[in-house]
Write a protein that binds this DNA or RNA. Structure first.
Length: 894
RNA sequence: GCCCAGAUGGUGAAAUUGGUAGACACGCUAGACUUAGGAUCUAGUGCCUUUGGCGUGGAGGUUCAAGUCCUCUUCUGGGCACCA
């Protein structure tokens, strides 16, 4: 019987949908298990072949868990607010909601044809008012809460007010979890919007090439920093990869040190610095302020004013990204003032340097060039003093950064080890009242305002300039209609265009919207109880599902979404709305399927002219991604390029010669597949051509789930052949007899391997195990029905359609997903024959491979037999027998 | 500059975690069946100067034994907030 993929797959997808096969119940006798995929942003390009990698893997695991008797929650939804839809709206006038809806439909269709077993009754969309009602609700809760550092949790702001009646509304802003504050941003006047560092290149906006400036604006912030310690400590108790935890630890950035006060000579000014190396206090030879420090104005002397201003101007132009990347060029300027070292009263020059960042610590450091490489470079460049205070380095060669050695040149610290010196200095600092021990985190508060249209409106209005929260029964505050998706003439965000954007009482509403991560920070909770009108999630429902058992997604979210979601979840936990502090118990990062991107090069001087790859070095150009679908063999279809985007319709090209023709050659690179890189390949064609089961199996067979690799379809024929073979045999005439020992060995080897792989997420080797089993069975011409029945159950998470079809062909009732997962029997796997010696390296020793369960005596007896046979020993004698644990004997011959 | 990950045949990759390197596939070669083959089956396939030798990016080291552990190094991918 021929295997018609389309017919079978459609039949079973319809069956699952009509029977609500994968609907999870909120209460069940069964144990619960929650498998979650990071929900996608529905981009216009549709799903690419990288998305399914994770979805298929999680679906396989989900189906496996169902076979194991769990009540599995496996939902899907859409992270539907976002910039691309808004950008598209600006370009075309199409409302982002329309674009988003259309994209979601495409996504849904693509997801459906892959046979993924989602419970679609729980679908959420972050742009849906009934969903973002709860995003707004959480924001209000955050505004009405503060972080109680004694109890180490968030509490209602009312409690703080009651305890400290003297606090004004203004003062409370310093405590609220959500608060309004002056925040520096990248402002692009031409676009009338704030840009991410990512959207700025060489001081110009990536989109349009307009100048960008640093500007301070009132923005909503979330006090994520209050949770730094808990976000760090919480990592101990969750099952994430070490590398991912490491990334988060690094991001949170705990450092233990001391805050020390320095006075400025001849000025009534003093300032704090934070250092992790208080032991080196006698090695301080200068101080460095961040260019954006408020102290700069206060300490700069009249004679140095001009130099300082020149330097500040230059720094401003550099931009943050550039400052980070450019580390070879040391730059700085002297302020003219001196600080006093509180321990020896020495005068130390105060400099300004852009290697010190305003946003971290106090924005000022004490520089110890002898023991810090960046300070050393600075000192060498400006010819400042270098005093070694730890024995062991050579200040002519470079700084000695290691935290070990004996103290020298350090007064009361002399002779101590570094560790002791740190302790001693810390206690001296405190007894002398010069400062205090301090643990510093570099995790910063999250800026929560966006001057955009397509996001959640803030549930905020202003009365006499003071922010007020809407009442809960006024939620959701729905996104208003606007006549254009651009900022207003006055530079207000797009919501400034909305008519009647005010409360019923006539007070103006907030014009900013929330950022992308707002909607994705609690969606995993909403899936538990998606239609609840009274709460984000009902407490008893939350008590059943608790948190996500397995979360699957890309590691690019390591420090963004995964920090914010943990923060958001911890906050809701503190306020008693949910029962688990950590949202994601186990996390697996799927690797990125990389694409092959193409680039064009635009003249900076003429934004309509593009230079071919071979000539680009002769011009000053900016690099852009171009759609790989209008490039072939790295050669650009120039007409298609003009039609590709409206702003390129008059594009001109500087071409190069190839094969006697003028062509435009594109640059290329292997990188992440994403819409913004225009290198997307869709899965639809694959499914269309080979069927969903083959596509699923192939994506798993490609390699380990965590590994990144460029997409290619070279091996898909192999899995396709395997499925055909399996189908042909299993759907043919089978024998209803007791399986032979040989058949059982093949079957149980496969059960064991696949079951182990399930727990290790090693699906590529499972696919291999199926192929081996199939090959072995076909070698012995096995057509045993019970063997194929069991294999079909094993295969059903991977290739569910074909498995369901076979299951009914075998005469069972439809619904293989509830069949008990088979367990293997070790008895069938033990080797009965002794097979030795198996190898001999010809010189000094040989190795015997022997059964696992042999004891030492048996092993030695085998060695002796080998010796007596002399067959493999080439006339040499056994010198030593070494019994290595488990299964190997080494016999050294000489 | 810093952090994380990685490097194994022509290709994607396995390797019980220190124990026969290259499972399983793709591709390729030969053959069978066939009007045909982009269907199916069978056999072969790491490399070389092939009675043998060499092989897991490179150089050392530990070990009876190293893809696996240690030191140094080169390259590739990803991330970054110079974190004092």
């Amino acid at each position: 019987m021929a295997y018609s993929t389309n017919e079978i797959e459609q039949k079973w997808q319809k069956f699952w949908s009509e029977n609500h096969t994968f609907k999870a119940e909120n209460n069940s006798e069964k144990p619960k298990y929650y498998v979650l995929d990071m929900f996608p942003y529905p981009s216009g390009a549709g799903l690419h072949v990288g998305h399914p990698l994770g979805y298929i893997a999680s679906d396989i695991y989900t189906r496996y868990k169902r076979h194991c008797g769990f009540n599995v929650l496996h939902p899907m939804g859409y992270d539907a607010f976002g910039l691309p839809a808004e950008q598209y709206a600006i370009e075309t006038g199409t409302h982002p909601a329309v674009t988003t809806d259309k994209n979601i439909q495409t996504y849904r269709k693509q997801l459906d044809i892959m046979g993924l077993s989602f419970d679609w009754s729980r679908e959420v969309k972050t742009c849906d008012p009934s969903y973002y009602k709860w995003t707004q609700w959480a924001f209000i809760e955050m505004f009405n809460s503060y972080y109680d550092s004694e109890k180490n949790c968030a509490r209602p702001i009312e409690e703080l007010k009651a305890k400290n009646p003297e606090l004004t509304e203004r003062d409370l802003d310093d405590y609220r979890i959500a608060y309004l504050a002056d925040t520096p941003v990248n402002w692009c006047p031409a676009l009338g919007t704030v840009l991410a560092n990512d959207e700025v290149k060489d001081g110009l906006s990536v989109r349009g090439g307009h100048p960008v400036e640093q500007k301070t604006m009132k923005q909503w912030n979330l006090r994520v920093s209050a949770y730094a310690k808990r976000l760090l400590d919480g990592l101990e108790n969750i099952d994430w990869s070490d590398s991912l935890k490491e990334m988060q630890r690094h991001w949170i950035g705990k450092s233990v040190g001391a805050e020390v006060k320095f006075k400025v000579k001849d000025k009534n000014v003093e300032f704090d610095i934070f250092t992790t190396r208080p032991d080196t206090i006698f090695g301080v030879t200068f101080m460095v302020l961040a260019p954006e420090s408020y102290l700069v104005d206060e300490v700069t002397t009249d004679s140095q004013k001009a130099d300082v201003e020149t330097y500040l101007e230059a720094t401003k132009k550099k931009g943050l990204r550039e400052r980070e990347a450019d580390q070879k060029n040391v730059s700085g300027v002297f302020t003219g003032s001196y600080a006093i070292n509180p321990f020896n009263n020495k005068e130390i020059p105060i400099w300004i340097g852009d290697y010190v960042l305003g946003g971290y610590g106090t924005g000022a450091i004490m520089a110890v060039p002898a023991h810090d490489s960046r300070d050393y470079a600075f000192a060498k460049h400006f010819d400042l003093a270098i005093i070694p205070v730890i024995d062991g380095g050579d200040i002519e060669q470079g700084s000695y950064d290691a935290k070990e050695g004996k103290m020298i040149n350090s007064d009361f610290l002399n002779g101590l080890e570094v560790k002791e010196a740190i302790e001693k200095t810390n206690s001296e600092v405190e007894t002398r009242g010069l400062g205090k021990k301090k643990t510093q985190y570099r995790l910063r508060d999250a800026i929560f305002s966006r001057q955009r249209y397509w996001g959640e409106p803030f549930p905020v209005y202003f009365k006499d300039g003071e922010p007020q929260m809407l009442a809960q029964d006024e939620l959701p505050l729905e996104l208003p209609e606007v006549d254009a998706f651009l900022p207003t003439e006055d530079g207000d965000p797009p919501l400034g265009r909305a008519k009647n954007w005010k409360t019923s009482g006539g007070d103006p509403l907030e014009l900013s919207t929330m950022p992308g991560f707002a909607g994705s920070s609690a969606y995993f909770l909403r899936y538990m109880d998606p239609n609840n009108n009274q709460a984000l999630v009902d407490k008893s429902v939350n008590a059943y599902w608790k948190n996500v058992d397995l979360y699957l997604g890309g590691s690019e979210h390591a420090t963004g979404h995964l920090i914010y979601a943990r923060f958001w979840n911890m906050f809701l936990f503190d306020r008693g709305y949910i029962c688990e502090e950590e949202p994601f118990q186990k996390l697996i990062n799927q690797g990125m399927i990389q694409g092959r991107s193409n680039f064009v090069y635009r003249l900076k001087s003429d934004l309509n002219t593009f230079v071919s790859h071979g000539l680009k070095d002769q011009y000053d150009v900016q690099e852009f991604h171009v759609d790989v679908n209008i490039v072939s063999n790295d050669q650009l279809d120039m007409e298609a390029f003009k039609a590709w985007r409206p702003d390129f319709k008059d594009a001109k090209f500087i071409t190069e010669q190839e094969g006697g023709q003028d062509v435009y050659k594109c640059g290329w690179a292997i990188e992440k597949m994403s819409k913004s890189k225009y290198n997307v390949v869709n899965p639809d064609d694959m499914v269309e051509k080979y069927g969903a089961d083959t596509f699923r199996l192939y994506e798993m067979f490609l390699g380990p789930i965590e590994q990144s690799k460029p997409w290619n379809t070279n091996g898909i024929e192999g899995v396709s052949r395997f499925l055909n073979k399996f189908w042909n045999t299993a759907s043919g005439e089978l024998e209803e007899s007791v399986p032979t020992k040989e058949e059982l060995k093949i079957l149980h080897t496969c059960i064991k391997k696949v079951s182990e792989d399930m727990e290790n997420f090693s699906f590529n080797t499972s696919v291999a195990a199926f192929m081996i089993a199939m090959n072995d069975l076909s070698k012995i011409k096995s057509k045993n029905k019970s063997v194929f029945e069991t294999l079909t159950v094993l295969l059903s998470p991977f290739a569910p359609h074909i498995a369901e079809e076979l299951w009914t062909l075998f005469g069972h009732q439809a619904g293989i997903s509830t069949v008990q997962w088979p367990s293997h029997n070790e008895e069938y796997l033990i080797e009965s024959s002794m097979d030795y010696p198996v190898s001999f390296n010809g010189k000094m020793r040989f190795t015997l491979n022997l059964p696992l369960d042999w004891n030492k005596d048996q092993l030695e007896k085998a060695a002796l037999e080998a010796e007596q046979s002399q067959k493999y020993l080439d006339g040499k004698n056994i010198k030593k027998v070494i019994v290595v644990p488990k299964k190997i004997i080494n016999i050294v011959v000489g």
